[in-house]
Structure formats: structure tokens, C-alpha cells
Simulated scan of single mutants.
Amino acid sequence: MSGQVTEPEQRAGGGRRLVRAWHGFRAALWRDLFVMVREVPRVLAQTVVQPFFMLLVMGHVLIQIGYVREDYAAILLPGILALTTFLGALQNTALGLVFDFSVTRELEDRLLLPAPLYTVALAKMAFGALRGVLSGVVIVPIGFLVLDLWWTPGQMLAALPLVVLGACCGAAAGLWLGTAVESRNIAVWFAIAVTPLTFTGAIQFPWPMLSDTLWFQMLCALNPLTYLSESLRAVTVPAAPHIPLPIGLTVLVFSVVVAGALGIRGFRARALG
């Protein structure tokens, strides 16, 4: 019958949709990257200052005065890297969305792209993840200098994909937060979210060593940042107690999928609302 769509035509239509989605994603991401090049110092100042002082005080000063053991620096650096990467991606994604939706209205232009809405949401998530990776890459040499520590090339190569995955997890959480919270309340909710994430993310301590404080260990287990910190310790300080790497990777991937799906749904609701 002439009204029926053949299988080759269906495949061709699906291919065109994928091409439009890719072009929309690339256009939205490229615009953000172009703006970021001019704002790199501000971006780094937002995400690196706090981790730098945590490294200085907790990893250098406390060791110098004998308050913690000398090997504590090796435990701390993976946690600080996880914190910088995750929160850098979360902060830039969430606050960027709020700013675009309520102040500049730039997203209204991007929503006119001949591409599905989810491509714009994915572009914002990818941009936030890139900022998180940038922050993490910058904090590592700072940590080496402050802590007088060094990782082998093999350890650095093993940590890099974990940094990328952690940045994607933070960006997905930022997409969810940035679309779920009203613009006027974002500062309050951001402060409420960041503080618990920071102190229950196993940044300053290995998670298995909390076995004598079971209630706090279970609380930390609910935080995806814990699994990023522990996964980075697994590849940089394998002799230290840590959550097995396969478990950490599984939880991080699951968190990206769930938070990303919720964030895309929230983005669609805000865009069409």
C-alpha cells in the first residue's frame, strides 16, 4: 500500500534524526565552550580555591605539626581530586542552568535548534563535565606541590577515566538540581546539598575504616562522591583500605544514568513550561 512506510525509509528517517540530534548537541556545546575560553580564570577560581586550602591545611600543616600521620597525604589527594571534579561539574551545570533560564534567557535561542530538546540538556551536561575535568586536572599538580607527593604515569592514566566518569556524575546531578529547584531558591539548596556531599563523600578518610561508626558509614554509602573517592584511591593508593573498584564503577555509572534521566526530564519540563 502506498501509505505504508518501508523499512529502508524508517532507517533513513532514524538516521536523519540522529544527524539532527548530533548537530544540535555540537552547536549548543560549541557555544558554551567558546564562552568558557574567556572565563577560564574565573572558573578555576570558583572550583580550585577551596580544595587548595584543604590540601594545605589538612595535608601539609596537620602533618607538619604531627597531628596526622605522614602517609595521610596519599589518602587525602584522591579525595580532594574527587571533590574538585564532582563539585566543579555539579556547580557549573546547576548554576549555569539557573542563570540561562532566569537571567540571560540564552536557552530560549538554543531551544529553537532543529534538534530534540534532550540534545540541549546533554550539551549542558557535557559542558559541566568538561569544567569538572578541567578543575580536577588543575588540582592534581597543585596537590603534588603542596603535599610533596607524586603519582606514577600508570596511576595518572588509571585515574583519568575515573575523573571523566566522576565529572559526568557531578554534571548529571547538577542537571537534576538545576532543573528541580526554583531559580530564587538555588543558592539555599546549593548550600544545603554541597555541605553534606562534601563531608559524607569519603574525601578525608577511607570508607572501610568507618566500620566502627556504622551509621555514618551507611550515610556515606548513599553519596556517589564516596565511590569516586574510593575508586581513585583504588588506582592511586591500592594498599590503603578502599571499596572494590568494580563496585565503585557500577555505582558511578548507575548514578550518571539515573540523575541524567531525571535531569533531562526536568529540563524538558522547564523548557516547555
Rank of each mutant, 00 (worst) to 15 (best):
G66S: 05
T152E: 05
R38N: 13
R131S: 00
M36V: 03
G260M: 09
L252I: 06
V133Y: 07
F254H: 14
G24C: 06
Q217V: 04
Q10N: 11
V120F: 10
Q91C: 05
F254I: 14
F101G: 09
L81T: 14
D212W: 07
L160P: 02
R69F: 00
L130M: 13
K124P: 00
E70T: 03
G170R: 02
G178K: 00
E9I: 02
L33W: 11
A115Q: 10
F190S: 01
A158H: 10
A126V: 08
A73I: 02
L117T: 08
V57M: 11
A126T: 12
P206I: 01
W215G: 01
G201V: 05
F144D: 15
V68Y: 00
P244Q: 05
Y67C: 04
S135C: 11
L122N: 06
W207F: 03
R16V: 15
V137R: 07
T85P: 01
W189G: 10
L56E: 13
Q46I: 14
G59Q: 06
P208I: 03
W22N: 10
A74L: 08
S229Q: 00
T104C: 00
G79L: 03
S255W: 14
L134M: 12
G96E: 04
P196M: 03
Y67W: 02
Q91R: 07
D212Q: 07
E39D: 12
V188S: 00
P153R: 08
V120L: 08
V133M: 01
R270T: 04
S183G: 09
P78R: 04
G59D: 08
G88N: 07
P224K: 02
L245I: 06
L252Q: 08
G14M: 15
L81A: 13
L249H: 12
A115L: 13
R42M: 12
G273M: 08
L252E: 10
L177H: 07
P238W: 00
P206W: 01
P224R: 03
E106R: 15
G143V: 05
V237W: 15
L111N: 02
P246I: 10
V68P: 06
H60T: 00
V253Y: 07
A12L: 10
I192T: 02
H23A: 15
N92A: 06
M54G: 11
T152W: 03
A259G: 10
S2L: 01
G59H: 09
R69I: 01
V5C: 01
F86V: 05
F144Y: 15
T152C: 03
V138H: 02
G24D: 06
F199H: 05
Q64E: 01
A74Y: 06
V235C: 10
Q91T: 13
L134N: 09
N92W: 09
M209L: 07
L97N: 09
R131G: 04
L90N: 06
L157N: 03
I139P: 14
Q46W: 12
L62G: 04
W30M: 09
P8S: 07
L197C: 09
G201L: 02
G132R: 02
V181L: 03
L165R: 06
V43K: 13
H242V: 04
S255E: 15
T236F: 04
I264P: 06
M218S: 14
A74G: 00
Q204G: 11
R38I: 12
V146P: 12
G166W: 01
L83S: 02
L44W: 12
P224C: 10
S231I: 01
L232M: 05
E39F: 15
V194H: 04
N223P: 07
L177Y: 08
L62F: 09
